[in-house]
Amino acid sequence: MEQQNYSLKQDPEYTPRPNKKSIIKKFRGSQKLQKYLFVYSCLLLPILFYFGIRIIPTLFTFNVGFRDWNLLSTGAQPFVGFENYLTLFKDEVFIKSLLNTGVYIVLGVVGQLLFGIIVALLLHKINRFVGLFRVIYFIPYVTSIVAISWVFQWILMGNGIINDVLVNLGIPPQPFLNSPDQAIYVIIAAMIWQAIGFQMVLFLAGLENIPDMLYEASEIDGATPWQKFWHVTFPLLNPTIVFSAVIGTITFIQVSFTQVINMSVDGSGGPLNSTLSVVVYIYQLAFQQFDMGLASAATVILFLFIMALTIFQMKVLTKKFDY
């Protein structure tokens, strides 16, 4: 404040004015106001764009969810209230897809955080070939999901290489993607494998930020490696973990589309809907059955689901640690 006033007074054009000033004059006189206006109008442009392509369509989805909306029809789209939502909650397939999405998120996110931390800790300890290992672990993340999915499908098929190994070890061949009990876990494993690289990078950055002196201090206090991890590394990684968990959850919901489409035996969440995720089901509702109303209602439910989950994660996982 003071600085501002000071600079104003230094301005050669500045002249003291009487108390009664018009808005324009006030505006012209105040560099502070002008500055804010400039900054806000610069920020406004991306916001308008964002409104146009994100917020408005999102709000429109809520509207569509309350209507009987056939995508192919050019006729009226009557308002039907909560009928779409009721239909969805009576729909066994939708419930199944919600449960599956829960499984995808819980196992997938926990799995990728766990493996991400392990790989990052290991890489943090070594001094040689660090770059090479980082590249190796990161490559899956930048490889095409479709290609990876098909490679997995081929390795895991009845006459595939993994079953060859199993048979040679005396274990009966497994159906993997052909089994309603195993398929979802196989897909989750492939997704985790692909996401490790990304998590590793985040955790490596997190680990770099922990000052060495904390470890030195704990060493002097006689802490075991496990105590060092649990009482120093883990709490200080907390912000990274929260960020990873939130981002991981959201991306998991998104990528459970490509993987499911390409890895499930029938290409649409089979066998017996055991791998169907909500996003795949939304796609089927919208573009195979052309029922935009149902699809939008399902999208709204997914939206609320993600929002609740994110708030939950932020509240529960975020803790302040000061050392």
Binding site: P175, N178, S179, P180, G270, P271, L272
Partner: peptide, 11 residues
């Protein structure tokens, strides 16, 4: 039809 077959074959 696929589901009916899978119910027999897998379940």
């Amino acid at each position: 039809v696929v589901d009916a077959a899978n119910r027999v074959l897998m379940e």
